[in-house]
Write a protein that binds this DNA or RNA. Sequence first.
DNA 1: TCGTCTAATGCATTTATAGGATTGAATCGA
DNA 2: TCGATTCAATCCTATAAATGCATTAGACGA
Lengths: 315, 315
Amino acid sequence: MDLHQLRTFVAIADNGGVARAAVRVNLSQPAASRQIQGLEAELGMLLFDRIGRRMRLTAEGEDLLPRARRLLAEAQSLRERARALQSGQTGQIKIGATPPMIETVLAGFLAKYRRHHPGIEIAVVEDGGAGLIARLARGEVHLAYVPVGDARFSGRLLYPIQVIAVLPQAHALSRARCLDIAKLADEPLLVLNRSFASRQWFDAACQTANIKPNVRLESSAPNAVLGLAEAGYGIAILPSMVRFPRRGVRPVPLVNRHTSIGKWTRLAWDPQCFLAPHVAAFREALVDHAQRAYPGRALIGRAPPLARPADDDAS
Amino acid sequence: MDLHQLRTFVAIADNGGVARAAVRVNLSQPAASRQIQGLEAELGMLLFDRIGRRMRLTAEGEDLLPRARRLLAEAQSLRERARALQSGQTGQIKIGATPPMIETVLAGFLAKYRRHHPGIEIAVVEDGGAGLIARLARGEVHLAYVPVGDARFSGRLLYPIQVIAVLPQAHALSRARCLDIAKLADEPLLVLNRSFASRQWFDAACQTANIKPNVRLESSAPNAVLGLAEAGYGIAILPSMVRFPRRGVRPVPLVNRHTSIGKWTRLAWDPQCFLAPHVAAFREALVDHAQRAYPGRALIGRAPPLARPADDDAS
DNA sequence: TCGTCTAATGCATTTATAGGATTGAATCGA
DNA sequence: TCGATTCAATCCTATAAATGCATTAGACGA
């Protein structure tokens, strides 16, 4: 059974003759004749009665005709779906991100993007940094926020994330343009737990600076830390992408011997996987958006710039 | 796009590899490889990412895979439907019949037949004799009750229909084994109108016998005629297939010079049309039923048998 | 680093499918 | 009633496609 045979079958039934049908399906008359014969032979039944030189559907033909139509329609729908996918008008995108990324960058961007591209279905997968790398490697997501330094993936640099301190306005250190971590030695600190990259960077910086931070609270929720800082309970240590302004507190970038603490963020993908046009378009739009309006950009300008890694965009 | 390509596509996705898929679809590995490449080329997109020596579905492939499955399932359903039609387990039958035929023969038979063949859909088309011939010629019905004598159709003889008189039991002539129409010359008669074949046969017989029948009533309803006969209003002239017994009246076959009046009935079909197995089976069952239990058979035995035409069964 | 496994490619062969010409039969018009 | 026409089927040949075998290229594991 062949789609061409079915098409010819339907055409003969519709046009009432092999010759006319042949024209409709861009075939010669003998070819159409043979196709219908081949179909009849394969199905083991006559689809048409040959009444003189006319073709009339048999009962079986009448029964199978609508089914053949459905099959052809389904095939056409498949082709059209493929064309839509190819042109990037439609398709699915799976993007992995950490909760802070989702909150600060992705949420706002997605709302805008979906309005302009209603055919695109965007699935956001929430996971931690290590989990995102694994998902990207397994092909579960097309794109993911991954820190710089993993050579397995291509990526586009987005923006730097730096560690900042959030101090009460009344605090003496809050007027500084930026703040060396040595000055935090005896201050009571409110920090995130070790699953946060910013906490790891902060710890590493303290270690190199030979400082033992006075941790008053370790939390898994940035907003909790921030709220306590507002209440004057201590100095919050957070990544620069928390949203400001907040009342009664001031953010100040941290430095370690005149060097900012943090890393650049990257939107990465697996270069071994074919990246569909609609995914590439989405990626470019997201990169553009993030680079223009990244969280904490006002703050970051106050500290020495982080070393910018090479952008290893291999597309 | 080709069903084979789609089948290979699905097989690769299911079996996770070209080589294994090739075995499943009875192809060599290179053939399967080229099929999927051809499909990808035609759709203008990669369906699989080649990760090392593995094949992993792209986003597009994942999108199109269920559609391909549906298409293949639809094709399989078409094949299975064709097989069912071919084996005669299912299908449609259109049979044309006159109202008396439907009432006396078909109704009872259909009830029985449908119980034993639930897959068969039987459509009964009610029409007059001339209408049935036209419908048969146009292919609107597969089978029809048609009088003998039409060479265009093949047919199987069913049973003779003879013209009978229905007399009040008290009538002197009601004791006869059969009755010559000459004896009806002066009796008040209740006859059917000229659209009934039996009426035409009766008229023809009267003409050859040089008799002017004394028609008291001409009706289009056999039961009305019969009812009036029961009421003693006259002698009813009817075809032999009316159902007996009736109270107070006796049926007597009519003869014209020792010759029965009537014709054989035939179940006919268009020999130019392919007769599907399930239609042929239905036909045989109906012929068998009609020949064994035809209406008026007890009555007909009392008159000289009608000349039996050749059974021109050309199948 | 070597061996193995997998998908892709080259090549020769087979297959089948197409079109053109022709035939045979049925329909139409004179 | 007899051509003329029309249409489906058939024959034949050429072209295109698909297949299988052998081989290659590349990745994965020991």
